[in-house]
Design a protein around this nucleic acid. Sequence first.
DNA 1: ATGAAAGCGCTAACAT
DNA 2: ATGTTAGCGCTTTCAT
Lengths: 325, 325
Amino acid sequence: MVAEVAGVSRATVSRVINDSPKVTPEVIAVVNAAIAELNYVPNRAARSLASRKTQAIALIVPESTAKVFADPFFASVVQGVATHLSSTDYTLNLLIASETDPDKTRRYLLGGNVDGALVVSHHSGDHSYTQLGNALPIVFGGRPLQAEATDSYYVDADNVHGARIATEYLIEHGRRRIAAIAGPQDMPAGIDRLRGFREALDAAGLTEGPVETADFSPAGGAEAMRRLLATGELIDAVLAANDQMAAGAYGALAEAGLRVPHDVALIGFDNDNFGATLSPPLTTVDQSPIALGEEMARKLVRLIAGDPVPRATITPTRLVERTSV
Amino acid sequence: MVAEVAGVSRATVSRVINDSPKVTPEVIAVVNAAIAELNYVPNRAARSLASRKTQAIALIVPESTAKVFADPFFASVVQGVATHLSSTDYTLNLLIASETDPDKTRRYLLGGNVDGALVVSHHSGDHSYTQLGNALPIVFGGRPLQAEATDSYYVDADNVHGARIATEYLIEHGRRRIAAIAGPQDMPAGIDRLRGFREALDAAGLTEGPVETADFSPAGGAEAMRRLLATGELIDAVLAANDQMAAGAYGALAEAGLRVPHDVALIGFDNDNFGATLSPPLTTVDQSPIALGEEMARKLVRLIAGDPVPRATITPTRLVERTSV
DNA sequence: ATGAAAGCGCTAACAT
DNA sequence: ATGTTAGCGCTTTCAT
């Protein structure tokens, strides 16, 4: 092995690989030369068996979330996670958590297969993994819904702020009868975005237009838009809790012979890439899911290292002006 | 450990865990009882160290592809892979292959970290991993572009067929001046879809309308559509090589004051979920990327097991009728 | 600062 | 069919 070529002991080689502070520079050089020469790659299994560390982290995607995987949001979070991790020497284990057999995932996590886990989901209930937080480091994507989960680590986009500036933008542009297509009220993103909407309205002293909730899907958004129109109330603007629903709303509006933004202005949320291709291009709120994913990964790595990290990290949201308002 | 509680040797416990054929049913029962009682979970690192198998497979996503990760196609392939793997006891290691340091990925793959790899990419050049196919089992998503890569394993959607039936559908609906927004001609998907388009036209004895290529992005599609219109040629239908470009075309068509499908019919490819929300809803070709991902995973698992598997697997494509034609 | 030696928790011949 | 005996390739005390 490398030790012989370098003329040192296996222990020293091990030290060099793990860059232990106490090794002579010369020895380091010799060992590295031998490593390069032999094209040596340490065996991961052996390392983790001996060190009791796996250098792997799990990214759990609940099955129900996976179905919505077509939602670019998740794809981007995953991308952010993977990207950040590629700069560390952690390996990413992606797993779809079966909801019919949740124990399989628990066993996996508790079986010492990974050093920590990332849980990404729109579903609040999925903080069922919170309890595992005591057994191994876990970072969640999205804030916990349950109060009892306040001791979990998470990173979330500033949904309240995003919805608020979007609504303010609508108001600044002269809209007064503002309705909302809210997301599910059992999901933090749904709740927080509706809250930001209301805060902006309150602050401006405006009465709230009708609110319909839907499931974050295009079809749901179209349905909600139809219900909104069916109320008979005057509406000159709509804040949709995500772009997918906004896209659905475009269709429903077109069916009703209403023009965007002439008759009703529309703002989405998420900045999915297809928004720019709608006509008119959709004004929306960007929450940078890639950054969110990176932040999650960074936080977990620190947590595993035992560094002190804050429970919550909030990533910024910003308005993307296009022409649907 | 479990052995003591069950009153057998460690070897027998190991046999039970790996369900070796030669163990008495009674012993199996006793051991399993002990396992359950002790809540025992075998240590993965130890197993793989001893067995020289990792029970892990890598899913490589080239960095350039990752940037297009917003394309729902990839997300769905990943979902299919993950879903299938969750029914096996393989672990999925997702990794973004840095293009600036391709050796990092090679080292990872050759370092015995995984039993096999899946490579997903739109980019033909990325069959650079083909050479590694001799070192460990690899299954590609998308057919190889290079002739020399004919000895690699892959699964691909039937792009030629999909484009062909789409074009035939246009013809059946009375369209005669059919143009195309083709994908990059250095990617199999781009090439094959254009080929299907031409085959259908030839078979019908129709002359081909203008063809513009773009990069599979919405913006590129919009640009291509503008160029198509700028040719001044009469066009009553357009086949876009993917939905993202079709979405871009909607915008360009609207700018030009042309109505879909009245003035020009439009068909996309991929069946991205937002297509149904465009107005009018986009007629498209479904290629079931989830099935493609599952197929890739299934194939790799068999390859690892040493089972005979065909080099190529082609998954079906089918027309999704909506109202853009 | 480096080496020697003992294991990490399992699987895989080889016996029996 | 089951037990015995060696390792798998590293890390990690403990010496020195």
